[in-house]
Computed example of a mutant assay.
Amino acid sequence: MSDQPRTELTVAILAGGLSHERDVSLRSGRRVAGVLRDQGVTVRVLDVDASLVAQLQEMAPDVVWPLVHGSSGEDGSLQDLLTLLDLPYVGSEPAACRLASHKPVAKALLRQAGLPTPDHAALPQSLFREVGARTLLGAVERKIGLPLAVKPASGGSALGVTVVERSEDLPEAMVACFAYGDEALLEHAVRGTEVAVSVVDLGDGPRALPAVEIVTEGPYDYDARYNPGRSEYFVPARLDEAGTRTVGELAVAVHRTLGLRHLSRTDMILDEDGVAWFLDVNVSPGMTETSLFPQAVQADHASLGDLYMDLVRAAQQN
C-alpha cells in the first residue's frame, strides 16, 4: 500500500506493460500520478504484470486510469479486465478501443462516415511470403503512389514508421515495419501541416482542445516525440479561423464516430486546400513532459490538475 495518507479518493494508474512503448507509458504514469497527488488524491502506479489483479483487489481503488500505450493497453483487453473486476476507469470502453487501435479498421469506419483519410492498403506479413514482396509492393506503388507512409497496423509512438519517397527504399521500410507487428498499413503520405487535436468528453459531449502544430527536424519519429530538441510545437497551431475549425471538427467527428469516451487525440494533416486528413487516433494519449495532450490542456487556459480530476470524476459516474 502507498505510504501517503489516505484521502477520500484513491486512483490506481496502470503503466508499463510489455509493449514497445513501455518506457513512454511509465513516464506518462509518473506525470499523471504527480498531478493527481498535488490534488490530494491517493495514487499508486501499478505495472501490468502477474501481480496486477491481486494489487487492484487489495487496493480497491475508486478509479483506475490505464496509461499503458500500445498492444494490450489500447486494444480493449485491459479495459475488458477492468470491466470484469467491476472497476471504473478513465478512457474508452473495450469495443471502441478495438475499433480505434487497429488503424485499418478505424480508417474504414471513418471513410464510411465520409471523413477524409488517405488511400491505403493493409497487408499482413504472411501475404508477402505467399505472393511475393515485389508483386505486392509494385501493386501498392501503382495504385496508391509515392510518397508512402509505411506503419504497423497497430501501435503508436511512430515505432516502425517510415515515409518512403523512392521505390528502392520500400523493402527496407517493410522490414522496419514488420519488426513491430505482423500487419502493415501502407498509406499515401499527404503533404501539409501536421496537427494533433485532443478531445475531452466529460459527459456533456466531446470538445476539441486547441490544436497542436508539430514542426520537426527530420521525421516525427520516436526520438523526435520524446526527446526535447528535435521538434517544435505551436499551441495553438498557426492556422487561420477556417483551418482551426476544420481540424477541431474532424477530431470531434472521429471521437463520436468511433464511440470514444472521456479523452482522445487525433493526428492529422491539413493540406494546402484546407482538407484535414485523418491519420490516427489515440485512446490513451501520452502524458509525458513533451506529450501533446497536456500541451493542449494548458493552451486551453485550463489546469492539468482540474482537468485530470474532472476525468477521474467522469469515470466514477460511468
Rank of each mutant, 00 (worst) to 15 (best):
L9G: 00
V11F: 00
L14P: 13
A15L: 02
V35W: 11
L36V: 01
R37G: 08
G40W: 10
R44H: 14
R44Y: 11
V45K: 01
D49Q: 08
A50Y: 13
S51C: 11
L52N: 12
A60F: 07
V63S: 03
V63Y: 03
L67M: 08
V68C: 09
S71P: 15
S72M: 14
D80P: 12
D80M: 12
L82Y: 03
L84I: 13
L84A: 14
P88R: 02
Y89K: 01
A95Q: 15
A96T: 06
R98K: 13
A113W: 00
H120W: 13
A122P: 07
P124F: 01
E130F: 10
G132Y: 01
T135K: 13
G138A: 12
V140L: 04
L146G: 10
L148E: 04
V163D: 04
R166T: 14
S167G: 14
M174I: 15
C177W: 00
F178Q: 06
D182G: 15
E183M: 07
A184L: 03
L185R: 05
V195R: 01
V199G: 07
V200W: 05
P206A: 00
A208K: 00
T216H: 05
D221R: 01
A224H: 03
G229S: 08
S231I: 07
Y233I: 09
T244W: 07
R245M: 10
T246S: 12
V247L: 01
T257D: 08
H262F: 03
S264L: 00
D271F: 09
D280E: 15
S284N: 12
S284F: 09
P285T: 06
E289G: 10
Q295G: 05
V297W: 03
V297Q: 02
S303T: 03
M309D: 02
V312P: 10
A314K: 01
